[in-house]
Design a binder for these strands. Structure first.
Lengths: 221, 221
DNA sequence: AATTTATTTTAGATTTGTCTAAAATTTATA
DNA sequence: TATAAATTTTAGACAAATCTAAAATAAATT
């Protein structure tokens, strides 16, 4: 069994690897992700390396081993299932779920997580639209593209997920009534600043910047 | 905010005080409850004392302060609400719930616990029949007496709670189909060994020893 | 290629929670 | 009441996770 901190390091490394698309992760980026110093990261890296959870070459960064990856993915599964529980059953907003799930994901009981999964109806995606790995660690993939890629007007757009997860961004979207599951229509493109005007289901017209549109993943046609 | 270990000490001390009906708790009993050494207990006692969570007089044991009690009761509330969740929603048996709830009770979010309480329909008792304190820390009391106190035959007996919580005892009761919420009838008293024969709802006849009957709390007439 | 800058590692210290062994104190017993 | 037994505390050590400051190494720049 691993400590909560060890688990958090594995998760952080996995997350960085996903984002960067690279396998070799440097100390500094881990330190940033974990909100700690590079020195602390080096210490922890050595421990995790000795436990064969990651490969470590001095001065040249780390990469997760199969076992390390397995743990990280299992944590992701637990985190996202708890988020669904908090959102669907306890009526937390999709902005609020993350923080509490960060704690719940460390509860150690495989039975718990399998029963929770069943209780929730084996959901495939969390409230942010991120895929929930199954108990074997495999994800459900689906086609989704940034809203900013779409150039066609007057078609129904389905929001599937978001690329960013910081609460200020989520709150902004929430204020605009944009979240996974919602549907809207693009009614105007502005070439000048690449912003777009959307028509929401209840008739509201909202304008979003290119930066925001780029972080919203939608169903392609 | 307090560490998980600090919380567990407060809970242990509260539990011992309840059981013994005394306010002054000695080091040894805390060590036993926590599964650690008396030396470790002394260390922790000092810390908790400095944080004003308990009163400590060297060599003469400890007692919880108002603040210490408040934390212990809040933990009890969280523990028991999670037990209801695990039992009622996830179909854990009443034997299994305790261990997982031990972990869940340390998740820190008051919002979570209030939402969970509402989701569960504001339950007043957990799967073992123990009362769940409300958010102000007050318990629902009800009349309940040990089954061993009853001398009357051929009346409906309602099981409300149990006095012991170790899993071997719970498993034994579960095998006999006795648990809170069940109803049965006493059909025979044996003076010799103080055992009693019960008739369960589905027609089974079971015999329980005096020791077991003493740990079962039932609704008095 | 030499030097500056950025990154990483090491060294040494701190906190939390634990341990064992020994000393101190209280309680029980003769 | 003196001694033995039980309990509690102290002292010193250890592991986990962190920190700061300094040293080592790699990467970037002139």
């Amino acid at each position: 069994m691993y400590t909560e901190t060890e688990e958090n390091y594995l998760k952080a490394i996995y997350k960085i690897a996903q984002k960067q698309g690279e396998s070799s992760i440097n100390t500094k980026s881990i330190a940033e992700e974990m909100g700690t110093s590079a020195a602390s990261v080096t210490d922890m890296i050595k421990r995790l390396s000795e436990k064969s959870l990651l490969q470590y070459e001095k001065y040249y960064g780390v990469s997760l081993t199969k076992e390390g990856q397995k743990i990280a993915v299992h944590l992701l599964r637990k985190h996202r299932l708890w988020e669904v529980f908090l959102h669907d059953k306890l009526n937390f907003t999709w902005v609020e779920v993350h923080e509490v799930a960060e704690q719940l994901e460390h509860v150690k009981s495989d039975l718990l997580i399998e029963k929770l999964d069943a209780f929730l109806g084996h959901p495939k995606f969390d409230p942010h639209g991120d895929p929930i790995p199954n108990s074997n660690g495999s994800f459900t993939f689906r086609n989704q593209i940034p809203l900013s890629n779409i150039r066609e007007k007057n078609i129904r757009i389905h929001v599937l997920a978001v690329k960013q997860h910081d609460s200020s961004f989520l709150k902004h979207l929430d204020d605009l009534k944009i979240k996974p599951g919602e549907v809207f229509e693009i009614i105007q493109f502005t070439d000048y600043d690449k912003s777009m005007k959307l028509l929401t289901k209840n008739g509201d017209q909202i304008v979003i910047t290119h930066k925001v549109a780029d972080a919203i993943l939608v169903r392609p046609q």
